[in-house]
Design a protein around this nucleic acid. Structure first.
Length: 174
DNA sequence: CTCTGGATTGAC
DNA sequence: TCAATCCAGAGG
């Protein structure tokens, strides 16, 4: 994913996501539309950005047709472009920590409240087709940091990738 | 209006 | 392991 801003552009490859389905108690939209989750019920391909814990933002992609509240949370990026800008924004000590976590990548890319509802198919914030390097595999696990629906296997990540956030980076047993 | 708890992070 | 920090959502 890529973000162009007045301070410059920055980009990274998505290496970890979580799905939030309409009938899933952990999904913000599972109990109907509210002022916060409004955009989740809109067009797929729009950004859903929300504020948590009094200090952090998380970035999601709306994925279902209008009227159905579902989204995918982007939890980690492998930083690829303009790491120096990311470093400035994050003040991170190591490059590995630049985008390793949902609120961290939001900070590294310079996203925020203003990006909620933005079209991701055109404009300064876009998601491009992804890829996998030779030998890389996608693993599945329960989602991180939630209570309701914690057993559902809806977290997807590149096994062993160092840019995957806190929580299991490897399949159990590896 | 009041109250509770959270899709996290960084310091200890 | 724990505090920071404030808002969304539910209930009165």
């Amino acid at each position: 994913m890529w973000h162009d801003s007045p301070q410059g552009a920055a980009a990274g490859r998505i290496v970890e996501t979580e799905a939030y389905l309409a009938d899933d108690p952990a999904c913000h939209a599972s109990r109907g539309m509210t002022p916060r989750n409004r955009v989740m019920f809109g067009l797929p391909g729009t950004a859903y950005v929300y504020f948590v814990y009094g200090m952090h933002y998380c970035f999601n992609v709306v994925t279902a047709p209008p009227g159905v509240g579902e989204a995918v949370l982007v939890r980690a990026l492998e930083p690829l472009w303009n790491l120096s800008l990311m470093r400035t924004r994050r003040g991170a000590k190591t490059d590995a920590d630049l985008c390793r976590g949902p609120a961290r990548l939001v900070q590294a890319l310079g996203l925020g409240r203003a990006d909620n509802g933005r079209d991701l198919c055109s404009g300064p914030l876009v998601i491009l087709p992804g890829w996998r390097e030779e030998g890389e595999k996608v693993s599945v696990s329960p989602r991180i940091g939630i209570v309701a629906g914690r057993d559902l296997p809806l977290r997807f990540y590149l096994a062993g990738n160092p840019f995957v956030s806190r929580g299991p980076r490897k399949k159990a047993g590896d």
